[in-house]
């Protein structure tokens, strides 16, 4: 899309765009270029010499069972977070879309958690789930369930999934509600006349009409779970016990910042960039379809 009317002048627009371009070049393009350079280099143990090794860091990485484990773990984590947060949000949105008393109040009370920081969400859930301090954690232990997410792998994973999904429900809820409100009343009325009720009406009428929103949110949720949950994981488990909750971003942080393995961490960064580019491309395809509707 282009505008028909424009202002004349060439210098002014360049000056207007300059700050954005400068920041982008210094803080995005330069580091991204460095990541690619580092990913093809290897330093000796003392950091004195750097040699060019081509794709060796990548092939090491892809052959490394620890890296593959982390990738698989991240995939499972992302799918669980997306399914849980979108499922709960859709349920709430469907009922918040009904004509009931206090609709506006319900909406407000379901939207505010959008503002909670991932790391703060994690702290709140510690108060619920901590084996000695947390109300639910203590209750579980008193009733014969050995609950300690700091020691047990599966419990640790379920806790980070829960806290990450909880924080994302509000966002999904806002979009599902907007999507539901965009469905013309005449369509649902017609379905009602035809005798389609409850679950069947939802499954055959509402859900197909909501499909673009579902697709869009799916991509957003996967990106959120993959990249924005670092704070949640770090505060809850720090990636542990062992590597039980070490997602790919946590691994980049551990390898790069804690263990100072520059080459491997950069190669991991480059692979993650590839993943983000793929997801962004997918998102724009979905968005394109969305606006075409």
């Amino acid at each position: 899309m282009e505008r028909r009317t424009i202002f004349p002048g060439r210098l002014l627009p360049v000056l207007l765009a300059a700050p954005q371009i400068a920041l982008t070049a210094v803080f995005f393009l330069w580091p991204a270029g460095q990541a690619m350079w580092f990913s093809a280099a290897r330093q000796d143990a003392f950091g004195l010499r750097t040699e060019f090794v081509g794709f060796e860091n990548f092939s090491d990485l892809l052959a490394d069972p620890l890296y593959r484990d982390s990738a698989g773990r991240t995939a499972v984590f992302c799918v669980l977070v997306a399914a849980l947060s979108m499922g709960v949000a859709l349920l709430l949105a469907v009922f918040a879309d009904r004509e009931i008393r206090g609709r506006a109040a319900y909406r407000t009370l379901l939207i505010w958690p959008y503002a909670i920081a991932p790391a703060v969400a994690a702290v709140l859930w510690i108060l619920v789930l901590h084996p000695q301090v947390g109300l639910l954690g203590r209750w579980l232990n008193r009733h014969g369930i050995a609950w300690d997410y700091r020691l047990r792998d599966a419990q640790a994973m379920s806790v980070v999934v829960l806290a990450s999904a909880w924080k994302q429900v509000s966002y999904d809820f806002i979009f599902f509600l907007a999507g539901l409100q965009a469905i013309p009343r005449t369509v649902t009325e017609a379905a009602r006349m035809d005798g389609a009720r409850g679950w069947r009406r939802f499954r055959t009428i509402t859900l197909p009409l909501l499909a673009p929103t579902v697709l869009f949110l799916l991509v957003v949720n996967l990106v959120y779970a993959a990249f924005d949950t670092f704070g949640t994981v770090q505060a809850l488990t720090g990636g542990g016990p062992g590597k039980a909750t070490e997602t790919l971003v946590v691994k980049v942080y551990r390898d790069g910042v804690v263990n100072l393995d520059l080459g491997s961490s950069s190669a991991q960064s480059v692979l993650l960039m590839g993943a983000v580019i793929a997801l962004t491309a997918l998102q724009f395809r979905v968005l394109g379809r969305r606006s075409a509707d």
Binding site: I6, G9, W30, V276
Partner: peptide, 30 residues
């Protein structure tokens, strides 16, 4: 980008667009 025509406009737009794909989380060390 929207109200002017200038050399490099398209390139500038794509450079900005690229940053969408490079969140901090994927380029920690560099």
């Amino acid at each position: 980008v929207a109200f002017f025509r200038w050399p490099g406009r398209r390139l500038a737009f794509w450079v900005i667009f690229l940053t969408l794909m490079l969140p901090v989380e994927v380029r920690i060390i560099p």
